[in-house]
């Protein structure tokens, strides 16, 4: 595969300090390099949060604009990429906040089952496939992603922020305006529900 070279994709901005200085001076070459290096990751981050390509593209554009507006305040304590990731997540969350709230009780049927003795009801697992086994078949990736999409929105968002974007509990709580306790409850329920949704795959049964 031939990789297309972007304008400004070579030359003086290979090192983060150079790039940062170029961005602070507002050089087009630096901006171009900055965008080219990060846009793929940012599109992926925004798309998995807002689940809409056009909205995701808007988030990415807004995130770049905010980043450049505030570039003088970037002190280099974190990596530029990490900083930009956080800005993108925040943009995506703003889009999500503007959407109407979805019903939250849909998660109940997906939670683990217990009997009247408080014993867990879990059928035996004669075999359990690993994530690697499952994803070795290309079409399974889309299936896993579609199962994640089946989670009620308020749980799916917490799962994506914690497990995929790797924000910590306090950061997710702040981003969503909920308590840390609530983040933990939603994360655990989201994972439990996803386990139930992915069970046929993990058991090696037909989806």
């Amino acid at each position: 595969m031939v990789l297309q070279k972007e304008p400004g994709g070579d030359g003086p901005f290979n090192d983060e300090e150079d790039l940062l200085a170029g961005l602070k001076r507002g050089e087009r070459g630096a901006v171009s390099r900055f965008v080219a290096d990060n846009i793929g990751r940012m599109r992926a981050v925004a798309a998995r949060l807002v689940k809409d390509e056009d909205l995701a593209e808007d988030c990415v554009q807004e995130a770049f604009i905010k980043a450049l507006k505030n570039i003088d305040r970037f002190e280099g304590r974190a990596k530029l990429r990490t900083w930009l990731h956080r800005i993108t997540v925040n943009e995506a969350l703003m889009v999500l906040r503007s959407r109407k709230r979805l019903a939250e009780d849909l998660i109940d049927p997906l939670l683990p089952d217990f009997d009247e003795n408080a014993c867990r009801l879990e059928a035996p697992w004669p075999k359990r496939l690993s994530a690697e086994d499952i994803l070795s078949q290309a079409e399974q990736r889309a299936l896993v992603l579609s199962k994640i999409d089946e989670l009620p929105e308020s749980y799916r968002i917490v799962l994506v922020l914690r497990d995929i974007e790797e924000l910590d509990t306090a950061e997710v709580a702040e981003a969503l305006g909920i308590t840390e306790g609530n983040v933990k409850v939603r994360l655990h329920r989201a994972r439990s529900a996803l386990k139930k949704l992915l069970e046929p795959l993990l058991r090696g049964e037909a989806p």
Partner: peptide, 29 residues
């Protein structure tokens, strides 16, 4: 499985950069 399903190797490849995006970002600066 959830984590790995999101690992998209294509996302880290250089992508086409829309010129109007660069212009919008430059204007912001």
């Amino acid at each position: 499985l959830g984590k790995r399903a999101f690992d998209d190797p294509a996302a880290v490849l250089p992508q086409t950069v829309p010129e109007d995006l660069i212009t919008a970002v430059m204007e912001a600066r």
